[in-house]
Design a protein around this nucleic acid. Structure first.
Lengths: 250, 250
DNA sequence: CATCTCTGATTCTATAGAGAACTAATGAAG
DNA sequence: CTTCATTAGTTCTCTATAGAATCAGAGATG
């Protein structure tokens, strides 16, 4: 749990910046460096106001910034908490598989292959490790009602995820990130994704049970932990005819 | 220009809601019904505070809501203005055509065909007019350095856009929405888009100068005016290998 | 055991006001 | 004509305070 801040500590940082900015910067570092962990309760507005000797309204403004950055969550009457990101909804915000609509199902995950190999150079770059370092490679199929919906290629830095190899693949459930946390203590807190499309390779077509050269959606993701450290590189491919992404402009 | 609000008018609406909510609702209606038009300057914070007899801080909170809804824009020292949406950047946030990177060019638009026909039923539904009504159909090619990058199919409600037919197609420039405003007074203020991918039809392949059955990205857009009235339906197709969409999660 | 009531903690709403920072326009000085 | 200083108007920052609304838990009541 985050400790109450020192009493009377002056806010550091560039004094040309407004107070609420400097406070937000300070709290953001607490979260991103993992001293305040997801689920933890933050000090109350009044505690922070007293600790840093600023008005409660100014504290509120700082916290508001972090709330709409998605780092904190406020509950009236209960307190302010460090937000725990939920990734099972992120990717599947995009993919709406044409099943009985409405329900947001999490597809089953089936690991087809897992082993240690040198990281391909583009993955090494994304994970910010030196070329040729060992990685854990996985091939994973995700299914909904026995129908394959996504074919995934996943790479981990072997030096960070040693414990993960001890877990038999049959024990791994539908979601990987909770497993990473349980076996290796690495918590995924953010991710970058890039979406493209391509024609299915024979291999991909076989896995997804479609004709080769049919269009597939490709999503490349780098999942990151505290401080933005890259933890996992992943490329997911799904049938384009089951994909649509809706957006609203201004 | 928006007139200064009546002096001393009490805020209507559900009195269980907070004041700043009710003020925001009221101002939002002004904008969405077109009484405050894009580019107009809104009354100053103090004017609003005086007019509705609430504290300036409360007015600020209401305006803040509308600002991050994208309806208003604040300029310190200058005032608060109704935001004018910029669509030339929206679609091309997605497509990063592999030209000399960096610059955000607006592709040239070339209208290949324009005529009056009954609206297809799915378009009529999207535009919220009765089946069988007349529409203006356009086929349009967008090019960058003489290379075709997007093939567009565009439909308008003929009863709303009569004046648009008088303008010769050669006079229409790279952007359509300013032309709509100039010829018919319809201002596009928001849009919904749905992104999918498919295999190129022979027709699309010919226009984009790619092989048939190569993957293409498809973006369907409904552009709307004040009050959410649908104005234009558009389907744009571009080569998938020149497309990527980047997003960040939490 | 279940239900209600109270209490303390917390966020939320709203007010009032002072000064800082910035902008655009005006007028003076060169 | 150009440049600089002034001024009025505007948003932004920050303080201080009071009460409302909500929540979790403790305790009383049935």
């Amino acid at each position: 749990m985050p400790s109450t801040a020192d009493s009377g500590r002056a806010l550091s940082g560039d004094s040309r910046l407004p107070l609420y900015q400097r406070l937000a910067d300070l709290l953001r570092v607490e979260i991103q460096d993992g001293r305040w962990r997801p689920g933890d309760r933050a000090p109350s507005e009044n505690e922070l106001a007293d600790a840093y000797e600023i008005a409660p309204g100014t504290v509120r403004q700082a916290i508001a910034m972090l709330v709409d950055e998605g780092l904190l969550e406020r509950f009236r009457g209960r307190g302010t908490y460090v937000r725990r990101p939920r990734f099972d909804h992120s990717l599947f915000r995009f993919f709406r598989f044409r099943q009985a609509s409405g329900e947001s199902l999490v597809p089953e995950g089936r690991i087809l292959r897992r082993g240690v190999q040198p990281l391909p150079s583009h993955v090494a770059r994304a994970l910010e490790v030196e070329e040729g370092a060992d990685g854990i490679a996985m091939s994973r199929l995700r299914l909904l009602n026995e129908q394959p919906v996504l074919a995934e290629e996943i790479w981990l830095d072997a030096s960070l995820f040693a414990g993960f190899l001890d877990l038999p693949v049959e024990k791994v459930g539908a979601l990987l990130y909770p497993v990473y946390e349980a076996t290796c203590g690495h918590l995924v807190v953010s991710a970058d994704e890039v979406l493209t499309a391509e024609a299915a390779s024979p291999e991909t077509a076989r896995l997804l049970r479609i004709e080769p050269a049919q269009p597939v959606i490709v999503i490349e993701r780098v999942a990151r932990g505290f401080n933005g450290v890259p933890l996992e590189w992943r490329r997911s491919r799904g049938r384009a005819d089951q994909f649509h992404y809706r957006t609203e402009i201004r």
